[in-house]
Amino acid sequence: MKSLETQLRTLRASGRKALVPYFVAGLTPDWLHYVDAAIHGGADVIEIGIPFSDPMMDGVVIQEAAMRSLARGTTLDSACSDLRSLTSSVPLVAMTYYNIIHHYGLLKAAGALRAAHVTGAIIPDLTLEESGEWVHCCASDDVANIFLTAPSTDEDRVAKIANVCEGFSYASARMAVTGKSTDEGDAHRVVDTIRAATDIPIYVGIGITTPGQAQEVSSYADGVIVGSALVQQILSGATPQDIEATIRSFRQALDQS
C-alpha cells in the first residue's frame, strides 16, 4: 500500500474527517504562506494545482488563478522546488493535467514529485483506460494515483476505477467543472456507489464552498476537498491569516459532524 493511503486510513480510523484545501502553485510570490496557514488552521492534506494553459476541468476561478500563476513563470520544476522548502509533515497531493507530466516525462515527473514530498497525484484528464503507463511510473516512487469518480460513472466503471485508485477516492459531487456551488449535488449517491466497491477513504470535491456543505457531506464521506472557494478568496486579496480563519471554520464544522 502506498504511504499516503496508509496515512489516510489511519486518519479515518482516528475518527477525524479529512479537510483537503486546494492551492494553485505559484499563484503569488508568497503562495507557500497560504499553504502554511491552511496547515495551521487544521488541514489534513494539501492539494497543489500545477497550472496548465488549457484547464479543461476547471471553472473560471481556477482558470484565472492558473493564468496568473503561468504569467509568473510557474513550472512543474518551480512548484516542486518551492514545495521542498515546506517543513510540515502534512501529506501533499499534486493536481495537474496530463500534458504537463507527459511533456516532462512520466518517470521523471513521478520522481520530481516524490522528491518534493508529494505522495499523491490527481490527473483529471487521464482516463482509467489511458492510465497504465503513469500508474507503472508511480509504482516505484510511492506516489499514489488518485482517480475521480463522477455522478455519470456506472457501477461497472466504479469498480474498475476502485481497483486502481490509491490514497483516496475522489468523488465528484456534481456534473460540472470546478467552481462554487450551494448544494451537495449528487455526492451522497456517488459516495455510496464507491463505498460498495472499495473501503478506500472517499473524499468529496467539486463545488464544496461553505463549512455547512462540508459538514453535511462529511456525514457520509471521509473528507472534503475545498478548491475554488479558497482560490477565489486569494484572488480577491485575502491574506494567509484570512485563509487560516476560513480553514478553521471548515475544521470546526467537520469536527462537529
Binding site: 479543461m56 487521464l126 482509467l128 489511458e130 455519470s152 456506472d154 466503471r157 465528484s172 456534473m175
Partner: peptide, 20 residues
C-alpha cells in the same frame, strides 16, 4: 480499440465524460 491511430488518438477526458 483505444481509438489509437498508431501512437496518436486515444481518450483523455474527465471521467464525467467517459460514459458519453
Amino acid at each position: 480499440d483505444r481509438g489509437r491511430f498508431g501512437e496518436f488518438g486515444g481518450r483523455f477526458v474527465a471521467e464525467a465524460l467517459m460514459p458519453a
